[in-house]
Write a protein that binds this DNA or RNA. Structure first.
Length: 192
DNA sequence: CGTCGGATAATCT
DNA sequence: GATTATCCGACGA
């Protein structure tokens, strides 16, 4: 996961104030902020409780599929006809913010959803913590998830405040993607 | 392994 | 019109 603040964080979508897209970030905590980016990907945030008037959220960057791997795998299958779908390793099903949304079936219809009420289509529930050793197991592990040492580092893909170490993950967790710095996309080729 | 570029459209200036 | 909190396949070593 990665943390994003509001007016004080140049890397945050909320940095330039409230807009139609980021409105959920300015709403009550415990709700989802889903946005669409790069023309084809969804990413999901959880709005956090901060000081009065402040804005903050965390981007869910990756996850381990504990149950329903078949469903997640089906959602991650590519709609391209004819082409044989390459095998997706279990750990890669939700390895990355857009993949995670794909694996969980999250799209813009869930933007602003309250993740704390039972009737919501998207929920976040407290985990049953497992023993601190070893990564989460993708099969047959029930509802037990891992706990362990949490480490932090710079956020991925952001074009500002790259030195702020607001990315957090379980040390040794295989579903965490490697750090990659932001690469500015060169404008579409204009050859003379 | 690694780096590179194309896809693709909502959002904001 | 420019930019983007990304992913995937291609290609080289």
């Amino acid at each position: 996961m990665e943390a994003y603040a509001g007016q004080s964080d140049p890397a945050s979508h909320a940095y330039h104030g409230k807009t139609k897209r980021n409105a959920a970030m300015f709403g009550p905590p415990g709700h989802a902020y889903v946005y669409f980016t790069y023309g084809m990907h969804f990413c999901v945030n959880l709005v956090c409780l901060g000081e009065e008037g402040s804005v903050s959220a965390i981007l869910l960057r990756a996850g381990a599929i504990i149950e329903g791997e078949e469903l997640a795998r089906a959602r991650r299958s590519v709609p391209k006809p004819g082409a044989e779908r390459a095998y997706v390793a279990s750990r890669d099903l939700a390895r990355g913010p857009a993949r995670l949304c794909q694996a969980l079936g999250i799209d813009r219809s869930l933007d602003g959803a309250d993740v704390c009420v039972p009737e919501s289509p998207l929920r976040v529930r407290p985990p049953q913590l497992g023993p601190p050793q070893g990564p989460s197991q993708g099969t047959g592990a029930g509802t037990t998830v891992r706990s362990g040492k949490i480490v932090s580092g710079p956020r991925v893909g952001v074009s500002a405040a790259t030195e702020v170490p607001w990315r957090f993950w379980f040390e040794g967790e295989p579903t965490v993607s490697l750090y990659r710095a932001h690469v500015p996309r060169r404008r579409k080729l204009v050859t003379p």
